[in-house]
Simulated assay, not measured.
Amino acid sequence: MNIEDVLKKEVCNDDHIHLYYCAVKKCWKAYEQSAINLLELIPDLNIQDEIFEDHHIRLRCALITKEQIECYKLSHALTLLSEEYVELQLNKSLMKEALY
């Protein structure tokens, strides 16, 4: 994951969730606006700060597991862009589906 790429995607992000796979924690991470957008779908998730010391930057981060993705029926809406990066576009029907 490249921090500069993450920041470019998040700077004007209002309708996507960008998820990056974390092999260490075996979950997906959403940063900054993506983390906030993910919380709109799943309010039970927590946002925490992740510090990137090499870049002297702290980003908001939300974690989601594969099980949570399946539980909230999000897997069908994900677009796999690489083994470690998926994208989810927010729309009203997806928001309704995740809530029920």
Rank of each mutant, 00 (worst) to 15 (best):
R60V: 04
W28F: 15
L39D: 03
C22F: 04
D54I: 12
L59E: 12
D15W: 09
C27T: 08
D49E: 15
D44C: 10
D44E: 15
K26P: 05
V11W: 05
L7N: 00
Y20A: 00
I51S: 02
I47C: 00
A62G: 01
I36H: 09
R58F: 07
D49T: 09
E53I: 14
N46F: 13
Y31N: 06
L63Q: 06
D49V: 07
D15G: 06
A62P: 11
E32T: 09
L63N: 06
L63V: 06
L59W: 12
Y31C: 05
I36S: 04
L38A: 08
F52P: 10
C27A: 14
T65G: 04
E10L: 00
L39C: 12
I17N: 06
R58P: 03
L41S: 11
A35Q: 13
A23G: 07
L38M: 15
V24W: 01
C22R: 03
C27E: 02
S34Y: 06
V11M: 06
C12Y: 15
R58C: 05
N46P: 10
K29T: 01
R60Q: 13
A30S: 14
V24A: 01
K9A: 00
C61R: 00
E50H: 11
V24L: 00
L38P: 14
C22P: 06
A23T: 11
Y20V: 02
N13E: 03
K9S: 03
Y31M: 08
L38W: 14
T65M: 01
K9M: 09
H55C: 09
K25V: 02
V11F: 05
I57L: 12
K9P: 02
I64A: 05
E50T: 10
E32G: 01
Y31R: 03
Q33P: 10
K29E: 01
C22D: 02
W28G: 07
L19W: 04
I51L: 05
L38K: 15
V24D: 01
A30V: 11
D15V: 09
A23H: 14
Y20W: 15
R58I: 09
I57R: 13
N46S: 13
C22W: 00
H55T: 12
N13A: 01
Y21K: 06
E40G: 12
L45F: 06
H56Q: 15
H18F: 09
D14A: 08
Y20N: 03
I57H: 10
I47T: 02
E53H: 14
D15K: 14
S34T: 08
E53G: 11
H18T: 04
K8H: 09
E40Y: 12
